[in-house]
Amino acid sequence: MFRYIVRRLLQMVLTFFGATFLVYALMFANQDDPYQALVGERPLSESQRIALNAQYHLDDPFLVQYWHYVRGLLTGDLGTSLTQRRPISEMLAEAWPITIKLALLAVLIAAVIAVSAGVLSGIRRGGVFDNVTLVITLIVLAMPVVVLAPVAQVVFGVQLGWFPVTVTRDAGLWDLLLPALVLGTLVIATELRVTRSSVAENMRADYVRTARAKGLTNKRVIGAHVLRNSLIPVITLIGVDIGALMSGAIITEGVFNIPGVGFNLFRGIRAEDGPLVVGFVSVLVIVFLVINLIVDLLYAALDPRIRYE
């Protein structure tokens, strides 16, 4: 078990550098005129160019630039945003809390709804409830966030006035509820379907027949035997979804003006702010890898048949 974790952590180091390299290369290839992007609309003098190059090494070949970047990383310096003129680490520290809050709230809402509805429709497959949820999940699946987010904002934020239209940095849970709901729809349908099929499959398992033959109540057969087995894949899916939602909040954060990770990333990509994008994506990669590792370890804890060595 310990060796497994060490191995996974070492793999993570490699993945991390691979990911930064890729993102860095993509940003480099995408660059138009980084100097102009830096100064915005104003005209740029030759002396300014030289001064900027001394600071950002923008005229150096790609590999040299990447080397400068990695050297900074290794000393704990994620660099400075070209457009914001602030250290990336400072911006990350500001953006993460609200994104984590948003993602966790979204996952919580999605999981509660998906698991309870999935269990109910899995127990009575083909029933009215099952068919109704099937239709609803299809609609939700077919509705892209680009549509859902503005519609929800207009209907519940502007017209009904139930929720604030936009969200500030120190927003409370209530302020985040509407964006979290919108974000949750990204994962709710798959979570529900996975729960349903997992429950339905386990209902037919031989050990359920044994549990009935043991004279257990229906409540116990389902609660202790069916659910304990059915929820293993669901819990791991929810774990992966947490990672996906933290990174996948670009549109939602953009629409609701939430100053989180996705929001910054979106702005950075548009402004060709290389260091900002690479810095944010690298941290996202780390978050993703750590969550995946936790999910894999959780899997072993939930299913005694799985052991890592």
């Binding site: 031989d206 050990y207 044994t210 035997h225 087995n229 293993i232």
Partner: peptide, 13 residues
């Protein structure tokens, strides 16, 4: 039952 492996619940001792 016939097949004790599937007739026992895999996640409980």
């Amino acid at each position: 039952f016939q097949d004790a492996l599937s007739a026992l619940n895999p996640v409980y001792s």
